[in-house]
């Protein structure tokens, strides 16, 4: 049994324009100590998929079906007070924007010790000691001095490290990181990715990394799920995915990168993502796909095994390259 098992997850939101389907029939697993990347472009459903785990979606408008199991325990139907406990201790989240997710009117030290005192029941003093350890763990120099500082006194990279320290304060089993380095400079990003690697290696934390950046995926993830229009279109170990991308969308994303230019031109993906208001029976990628054939317009290709541990949802997948 995997640490986390998501089965047939479908998430929609009630809006003025009708039901918007953000995620459709996603199934995935996450093992202890594994770094899983959820990748894809804006609106593909990668964040909604991940935020379904700690149930950080607006309860009034969210329509969710399917199952999310942590250690075999169903989370989708868990009463809210129990869920709150899961959120603090078992599953925690690091968001993209470290400025808006820290409280500007409390010191860094207070914000970390607060979590430790509430969820771990530590004394003020024990929490202070542990907070200092955590700041050192995430690579913050002069941690004792930083404890007394306020978020505005820290740089973006340091704030993100503080966010990670708070997120791992109660040794969560699953850490969800939503574009954690997107707002950071590359020289700072490298250090923050090292922190995630280190957490995994030292504490065995399982990490779901939500990112649009294939470079980050290649750098740090063990496995990756590529999403398009709310569905998983491909899933494989990272080495396999980059060596043998089977889905034409995955291949298109890789070829569209500026570093993949051929003869001074980039491969474009023509057209646009279909509206999340519609629920087509055909392949959602068919009108942008270079390999489209009649069957793609008639029915939707299921996510099926292409090779060991490699799934793709395409009637005409690419072969071994």
């Amino acid at each position: 049994m995997s640490l986390l098992e998501i089965t047939d997850l479908t998430v929609g939101f009630d809006t003025e324009d009708g039901l918007v389907q953000a995620v459709r029939d996603i199934s995935l697993t996450l093992d202890e100590g594994e770094i899983l990347a959820l990748c894809g472009e804006s609106g593909c459903g990668k964040s909604v998929t991940a935020m379904s785990v700690p149930r950080l979606l607006p309860p009034d408008t969210t329509r969710l079906s399917g199952s999310v199991k942590l250690d075999g325990r169903e989370l989708t139907t868990l009463p809210e007070p129990d869920m709150r406990h899961v959120r603090g201790k078992d599953v925690s989240v690091v968001f993209q924007e470290p400025m808006t997710s820290l409280n500007p009117s409390f010191s860094v030290g207070y914000q970390i010790t607060e979590v430790l005192r509430r969820h771990e029941g530590l004394s003020r003093r024990a929490a202070g000691d542990r907070a200092l350890e955590l700041l050192e763990l995430v690579g913050i120099p002069a941690a004792a001095r930083r404890m007394k500082e306020y978020p505005h006194q820290l740089s973006g990279g340091m704030r993100q490290r503080v966010m990670i320290a708070i997120a791992v304060a109660c040794s969560p089993r699953v850490l969800i990181a939503d574009e954690p380095t997107t707002a950071l400079d590359v020289t700072i990003q490298a250090g923050v990715l090292d922190v995630f690697r280190d957490l995994r290696d030292r504490l065995g934390t399982a990490i779901i990394l939500i990112t649009h950046d294939l470079g980050v995926v290649a750098d740090i993830a063990d496995r990756a799920v590529v999403m398009y229009a709310g569905r998983a279109v491909e899933q494989a170990t990272v080495t396999e995915l980059f060596a043998n991308p089977r889905h034409p969308y995955t291949l298109g994303l890789m070829k569209a990168l500026p570093t993949a230019a051929v003869g001074g031109r980039l491969a474009e993906i023509p057209g646009m993502v279909p509206s999340p208001l519609s629920d087509p029976d055909e392949c959602a990628f068919h009108d942008r796909c270079p390999r489209v054939q009649v069957d793609c317009r008639v029915s939707r290709p299921p996510l099926v095994r292409q090779a060991e541990g490699h799934l793709a949802a395409c009637f005409h997948p690419g072969g071994q390259s």
């Binding site: 120099p141 740089s155 990279g157 340091m158 590359v186 020289t187 700072i188 990003q189 490298a190 250090g191 990715l193 090292d194 950046d213 294939l214 470079g215 980050v216 995926v217 290649a218 750098d219 990272v238 080495t239 980059f242 060596a243 890789m254 990168l257 570093t259 993949a260």
Partner: peptide
């Protein structure tokens, strides 16, 4: 700067020599 930007190729990326910059 060049060494910190990850390349979209896990085999190459994981073998690259990186310049790790201290501080902010």
């Amino acid at each position: 700067l060049l060494s910190a930007a990850p390349v979209a190729d896990p085999v190459r990326q994981r073998e690259r020599r990186r310049v790790v910059l201290g501080g902010d």
